[in-house]
C-alpha cells in the first residue's frame, strides 16, 4: 500500500478526543476528592482505563489500522493481567 492511500484522521476527531480526555481527567480529580473510600481507587483506575482506550484506538490508530495490531495489544494486556493475578495469589490469600 502506498503511503498516500493511508486514512487521514481529521483534526476535528483529534480535537474531540482531546476534549473528552481532558474532561475525563478533571472528572477523575473531582471523584477522588470526594470521600468514597475504596470506590475512589476503582473510579480513578476505571477512568484511566477509558482514557487509555481512547488514546490507543484514536491517537494510535488501532481503530483504523488492521485488526492484528489491536489483537496484539490485547494479548499484551492479557499477559500483564495474568502476571498481576498470579502475583496476588501469593499476597492476597
Amino acid at each position: 500500500m502506498e503511503d498516500s492511500e493511508h486514512k487521514i484522521v481529521s483534526f476535528k476527531t483529534y480535537g474531540l478526543v482531546l476534549i473528552a480526555l481532558i474532561i475525563f481527567t478533571l472528572f477523575s480529580v473531582y471523584v477522588t476528592r470526594l470521600d468514597l473510600g475504596n470506590f475512589s481507587i476503582a473510579a480513578a483506575l476505571t477512568i484511566a482505563g477509558l482514557k487509555s482506550i481512547l488514546v490507543f484506538s484514536i491517537f494510535m490508530h488501532l481503530f483504523y489500522d488492521k485488526k492484528m495490531y489491536a489483537l496484539m495489544v490485547l494479548g499484551v494486556l492479557v499477559v500483564m493481567t495474568i502476571v498481576l493475578i498470579i502475583t496476588f495469589l501469593d499476597y492476597g490469600y
Binding site: 481527567t25 484511566a48 487509555s52 488514546v55 490507543f56 494510535m60
Partner: peptide, 27 residues
C-alpha cells in the same frame, strides 16, 4: 512512517502518565 512511529512512542509515554497520575497523585 517515521513520524507515525515517533507519534506512537509519544502516545505510549502519554498512556503511562495516564496511569501514573491517578496512582500517585489522586489516590
Amino acid at each position: 512512517v517515521q513520524l507515525e512511529n515517533i507519534g506512537l512512542y509519544w502516545h505510549l509515554v502519554d498512556i503511562i502518565w495516564i496511569f501514573l497520575f491517578p496512582l500517585f497523585y489522586l489516590i
